[in-house]
Design a protein around this nucleic acid. Sequence first.
DNA 1: CGTTTCCCTTA
DNA 2: GTAAGGGAAACGC
Length: 963
Amino acid sequence: MHLVLVDGSSFIFRAYHALPPLTRKSDGLPVGAVSGFSNMIFKLTEDLKGENEPTHFAVIFDYSGTSFRNELYDQYKAHRPEAPEDLIPQFPLTRAATRAFCLPSIEQEGYEADDIIATYACQMRDRGGKVTIVSSDKDLMQLIDDDHVQMLDTIARPGQPPMRWMGPEEVMKKFGVTPDKVVDVQSLCGDPVDNVPGIPGIGVKTAALLINEYGDLETLLARASEIKQQKRRESIIEHADLARISKKLVQLDCNMPLDVPLDDLVRQPLEAKTLIPFLKAMEFTSITRRVASVLEIDPDDFEPDAELAAKGASIPGAIDVSDGPAPASGVAGPDAHAEKVLEAIRAIPCNLDDYEIVRDETALANWIADIVATGHVAVDTETTGLDNQAADLVGICLSTRPGKACYIPLGHTTGNDDMFGGGRAEGQMDMRLALDMLRPVLEDPAILKIGQNVKYDMGIFARYAITMAPIDDTLLMSYALDGARNNGMDALALRWLDHTCLKFTDLAGTGKNQLTFDKLEIEPAAKYAAEDADITLRLWHILKPRLVAQGVTTVYETLDRPLTPVLARMEARGVSVDRQILSRLSGDFAQRAAALEETAYELAGEKFNLGSPKQLGDILFGKMGLEGGTKTKTGAWATGASVLDDLAAQGVPLAQTILDWRGVTKLRSTYTDALPSYINERTKRVHTSYNQASVATGRLSSNEPNLQNIPIRTEDGRKIRTAFIAAPGNLLISADYSQIELRVLAHIADIDALKDAFEEGLDIHAMTASEMFGVPIEDMDPMVRRRAKAINFGIIYGISAFGLANQLGIARSEAGEYIKTYFARFPGIQDYMAEQRRIVKAQGYVSTIFGRKIPFENVNTKNPSERAFIERASINAPIQGSAADIIRRAMIRMERILTEENVPADMLLQVHDELIFEAPADKAEQAIPIIKRVMEGAAEPALRLSVPLQVDAKAAENWEAAH
DNA sequence: CGTTTCCCTTA
DNA sequence: GTAAGGGAAACGC
């Protein structure tokens, strides 16, 4: 008899870390570890053919959660990082893979895989059979014995044979003792990986020495006083208990009650009809081929496993629809699954009276127990305002399953009549107590927190020292699915549930008399609040399977969701803005505006409102009778900058005066006057808010205040940037991608000339001009270069002769000639454009290089201008969007790498192709190369761009100087 | 008092 | 020609 026990968990982690990420082609389900795992299992079954052929065979997994060892020692495996996000959905699939190979998949609650392995091994040994443990985990070496139990390490290591059998000899090499004494050695030396303490100051070598001298741990501890070395003796005496605890942690349990008896592990032959459908559902083509050839069957005779193909990632806690009625269409697959879930959720009534108000510890404890049992919870916070850096927590809502939700009032006040805001309302828990109870749940890596716009709640909780993780966000899910539509909760509730949510304004009123949430009566507030949590949870159930069905899981999980905590931290940090500089500038601008106003009145011959386009139009084209005025679409005179520029060039001094006036008043009203009002009382810094789901292409947007449109072009404008300063003792670092969109275009459209130019570090606009107009790059006429630059930008924007002519102030026919010349020289660009036009019409969306979908409505419109607009936007979207994806990737990994490199630089702002950091003055130069490296390598390893990315970075006291 | 239009700022 | 946010005037209730 020969029993083979595979340490399944170590296979999974090895497969995950050793292989590049792999996702299922059809829907982006992460399957890299499943693929590696399947390969390893298959290879193992092949390698064990012949004289080693097993009679019994099983794969053993760790049961998720804690084991009895945690009760012995709460720090056991405490430092173990949680599994990566894209690995978690692969765990159930590896179990499925095991079963597909006709192998028993064994795991048992409360026990680690090692204990299960130990128990089976002992039973087989006692029967006189042979045991092979397939693992590279040294903790299992205690099970090795001379005749019966050996280990097999199949993990590939450079310079070593692919299969390494391990017996007592290898144990002696590793631990310096015979296998039966491994436990004693480990009890002494401990194990930092599993956080087994051992005795401080004793390593493997010393431990082996001591055990070999004294025989075993207890004898050693009893006779510790005989040890000659003082330090060692004292440490052992002092920490004897630690060694005893360590022994219990390390000692594997050979007598645990097994759910599956040894006899049930009898080896079954591989069966094509179970294995091939699994492999096909996973879309593992090469292993399918190899298996088919070994089994001598034709894989085409088998269909993919419908349930696995449809189900995609098994979602913890997902509504079970496996027994539900088939949808009308009868089509199986991820779409059908998503539709079933939608129907199931919609069938659950939404009753506001069912919601609970949690007012005491007992009620909250019940909810927490429910959350722990469920493994996920929808969370929503209610606060005193929309700015999460200024607002205070008023209450928390939770929902664990559709229709079941609660509201926990914590900060409601009474007596809205008295000017002090009244006292604390009755029937509320102490906020500190409630938060202390909820903190372990909100921070538990095993409990998923679901929200709608989670970044807001993360920001609130962060101010109460709670780090909410891990998360799912229905706003971001909807964004990944449907793009920058209205993805607000009210809209989603209506779209997916036909449900109209209670309106906040109905409770609180509108305008300047609107009440803040803390002023609301608890009972009506609770209905509104709990409804939000209920709806959020329902939306999560509905949207999650749709991500799989629509093939956007990877986008959501790698580009959208992980960015949320990063942005939450950036928002919380804020940026320092110098009030004095702005105030001085404001005065300066005001003075100049006043002078310009006087001039304007004189030139116009009357006083009028310079800020009124209507009045200005009347004066210019009415009273002064100027020619060439055009009307806007509402029939008013157009007075935009281009119109005034023309007039000024024709010698109308008033036009230039207005332009200058608009320049300074714009700077004053939008920047110098508005920015100081955003300085937060508490932090003395300005905290913008990033909208992660509002831009169609995947860019971020920034508001309240918008820090992505701070002036830079004009000299006056740049002065405003000098007010963005580093905190004392620090510097700001600005790092920006050079020409990222043109580089992305060169990659996507595969334009050799552009790629070569970037590779050689040429001036890309000069090179374009040289190619188009046949002039040398050296000593180029700036006007020629300017034309080429406009064309390059035009290409990115989905060029039209009309637009280019406008931009360059030339005739449309001439612009058309330029474009023709350009396309003749770079035909690949024209192909790219045609392809995007085709794609958007065929499928209703275009995609970035990382798979983000940018949907368009009315793609088959007959309206020529609307059609042209959609075409231009769909040419631009993959370029702008891919660049946006790249900087997102950089941001997601930036903080971890800076931390690892021990460089304390804080990421503060993002401006599409630029990141702003704040770092101690003496660390800034150290940070710059790291920041550049992360940004320039941000596409990898998912993609290898065919052009280099270039980042320029500089540190200085203020943003103007750093840029 | 809320919404739309016009204009202007950024990448 | 792409993608945003926002201030002030104008409009509409």
